[in-house]
Design a protein around this nucleic acid. Structure first.
Lengths: 326, 326
DNA sequence: TACCCTTAGTGAAGCGCTTCAATCGGTTAT
DNA sequence: ATAACCGATTGAAGCGCTTCACTAAGGGTA
C-alpha cells in the first residue's frame, strides 16, 4: 500500500538504483541535480517513507535495540529508559522493551529479543537478584551493556557508589552532624562514608549489623535507629522511598524531621519533591545513564571497543536536613 | 553469521522451500516424517533461529507494535506496559517504546514509529493534555487504541470512572460517613459519587468549586478541607499520590488518619501499601488494561472490527479509613 | 582521430524468508 | 496400458531496499 522505491522509479522515470541513491543519501553526489529534484518531487507526491526493515535486511541490520528490565515500576528506571530511547531514536534505532521477573523468564526474553533481531541489549538488573544469565545473548555475540548495577560482568554504566556515600556524609558533616546513621545496605556506599568520616573528628557513622540486602520499611528502620545510643541526629537511607517511609514513621511517633532528625535520601525521585518536608537527596543522573548506555551500545554495534562509564551523583538540597550547632 | 534457511537446506540436503515449510509450521503436513526429522536435526545443530524481519518482509508484516506514552514515570503506566508486552509477546510481536512530552514531539514520534513499521499503536495520553494529533497514524491506516484516557476518539480501553466514584463513596457511606469530601477534579467520578449519594439520606458529598484539572498538593488539599464546615470525616482523592500527600500534611498538623479523617485513594499504587497508614484505595486493573489493549490492537491488525473495552475498578481495603458510628 | 577520464545513470544480484506453480515417482482406477 | 491422481519435493519469483559492476555519452588531451 505505501509507496516503494519501485513506484518512485516508475513515476520519476529513472532506475530504482538511482532513486535509492538519492533517497537514502548514499551516492546522492553522483546524481544530477535535475534527476535529483524529480525524484524528490515524486517521493513527496507519493508520500514515500523508507521501509527501514527492508533496508536493514539488505544492509544486514535491524536498527533495533532491546532493553531487558527487571521492574519497570522501580523508582528511576523509567527515566533511564527515556535516556536510552532518546539516543537510540537520534541514531535511527528503536527500543524494544522487555521485562522479566526471574531467571527463567530472563532467558526466554533473551531469545525473544534475539529472534526479533535486536543488535544490542541494555540490561537493567536489580541489586538483590542473582546475576541473570545472558549466555544466550553472549553466545550470539550481541553486545550487552548493564545499567545501574554493580553485579553484571558486562560493560556497564553506573553511578559511583562511593561518591554517593561520601556526598551524603559530607553534606551532613558540614551541617554539623556528628552522630550519623546509615540505614542502607550497600557496602560501597558505606565505604565511601567511612573513608570520609575519618576527616571529621568526633564524627560517628553507624550502620546496621546486617548488610544483606532487603527492602527496608520505615518502621523497621526507625526501630533500628532507636537501638542506637545516643539517638543519631541524622540518617542516610538507600533511596528516597526509604527516606519517606522513615519520615512518616518518625512523624507518627513524634519525632520531627528535620528538627529532631535530619534525613538524606538517594535517587532524587519525584516523590521527594512533594513529600513533607521536601526531601534532601543524593541524586543520580538518570537520563544520562540511559543515554550513555545507548551510546556505548551503538559503539559496540559499530564494532568499536567500549569501556565502563562511571557517572557522578549530585546533591539536591531541600528541607529534610537542618543545621546543627551542637 | 547466524544460520539461515539456505544453510539448513544444504545441510539437510533438501530445498529451501521444504525447510521453510517445516520450520515455519506452514505446510508441515505435506512433508514426510523422515525429511522433517532431518531438517529439525540440522536446525538444532546449526542453532537456527528464524529471522523474523525477513519473514515479515515477505509476509508484509513487521510484528511490531508501538506504545506512545506521555510519561513513563506516571503512577501506573509501567504496569499497563507490562500487560501490553505480555500479550504482544505471546502473539509473536514486540513492543516499541516511545515517549513524548508535547504535541510536536508526538507527531515526530508517530513518524518514527511509522517508519520503523509498527502495525499498530497504543496511545497512553494524559488527562490534562490537549488531544494529541494522531493524524499521521490515522492517515496511514495504522490501528490505534487509547488506554486509560477519556479523551481520545479512538477505540479505547479504560476503567469506568463513574464506577470508581461510586465504589469509593459506597465504601465510606457504608462505614457510616456522612460528611464526605471529594478532593479530585474528575467530573465523571464526581458524577458517580453524587448519583449514589442520593441513596444515603443525610450524606453530603462536597467537591472543590473548580474542577479544572491540575496537580493537587497535600497542603492545598488540606487547606481546602479546612474551609468546609463542618470538617468532613472522610475524603476521596484522585490518586494514591494525592492521598499520601494529604495524609502527610494532615499528620503534620495533628489531624490523625484514620482517627480524625478517613482517606480513600485511587489506583492502588504500590506506595500505598507501604505508606502509613496503609492506604485504602480504589484500584484499577493495570495489567489488564494493557493486555486488553494489546488484544484489541492485534484484532484490528488482523482486520477485525474492535470496540471499546470498559473495565471495572476494585476496592483494596487497608487502614486509612475507619468505621464511623456517629 | 584515437585514447582515456568523467559524469550520470542502469541492471542485476542479493539480504532471509514465503508460497505458488510445477515436477516426479508411484499408485490406483479404467 | 493409459489416464488420472496423489503425496513429497523443488524452483523460482517476490517482499523493498542496497550496492557493485557496468554502460553510454560527452569532454579533454595528445
Amino acid at each position: 500500500m505505501p509507496a516503494t522505491l519501485k513506484d518512485i522509479a516508475k513515476d520519476a522515470n529513472v532506475a530504482m538504483s538511482t532513486v535509492s541513491y538519492v533517497l537514502s543519501g548514499t551516492g546522492i553526489h553522483k546524481v544530477s541535480e535535475d534527476t535529483c529534484k524529480r525524484i524528490l518531487a515524486s517521493a513527496k507526491r507519493l508520500h514515500y517513507r523508507p521501509n527501514i526493515k527492508a533496508r536493514g535486511l539488505s544492509k544486514g541490520r535491524t536498527y533495533m535495540v532491546g532493553a531487558l528490565i527487571r521492574q519497570l515500576t522501580t523508582s528511576f528506571i523509567p527515566e533511564i529508559i527515556q535516556g536510552l530511547e532518546k539516543v537510540l531514536e537520534d541514531n535511527g534505532c528503536c527500543l524494544i522493551l522487555s521485562t522479566y521477573t526471574d531467571s527463567t523468564e530472563f532467558t526466554r526474553k533473551c531469545n525473544y529479543l534475539y529472534q526479533h533481531g535486536v543488535e544490542g541489549v541494555a540490561v537493567l538488573p536489580e541489586e538483590d537478584l542473582p546475576e541473570p544469565n545472558t549466555g544466550d545473548l553472549g553466545l550470539n555475540r550481541i553486545p550487552v551493556v548493564s545499567i545501574a548495577s554493580t553485579l553484571a560482568d558486562y560493560p556497564k554504566v553506573w553511578v559511583d557508589p562511593l561518591a554517593v556515600g561520601r556526598m551524603a556524609l559530607r553534606y551532613l558533616a558540614e551541617l554539623g552532624h556528628r552522630e550519623i546513621a546509615y540505614g542502607g545496605t550497600l557496602l560501597p556506599r558505606l565505604q565511601g562514608m567511612l573513608e570520609l568520616a575519618r576527616h571529621y573528628p568526633g564524627l560517628r557513622c553507624r550502620c546496621q549489623g546486617d548488610l544483606t540486602y532487603r527492602p527496608v520499611g520505615g518502621e523497621t528502620l526507625l526501630a533500628w535507629l532507636r537501638t542506637l545510643e545516643p539517638f543519631p541526629t541524622a540518617v542516610i537511607t538507600d533511596s528516597d522511598i526509604d527516606a519517606i517511609a522513615l519520615i512518616q514513621a518518625a512523624t507518627r511517633t513524634g519525632i520531627r524531621v528535620p528538627e529532631d532528625l535530619s534525613v538524606v535520601g538517594v535517587d532524587d525521585l519525584e516523590v521527594g519533591r512533594y513529600s513533607l518536608p521536601a526531601l534532601t537527596s543524593i541524586g543520580q543522573p538518570k537520563l544520562d545513564q540511559g543515554a550513555r548506555a545507548a551510546e556505548l551500545l551503538l559503539d559496540a554495534i559499530d564494532g568499536r571497543e567500549i569501556h565502563d562509564c562511571i557517572l557522578q551523583p549530585f546533591l539536591v538540597e531541600r528541607q529534610s536536613c537542618r543545621k546543627r550547632t551542637n
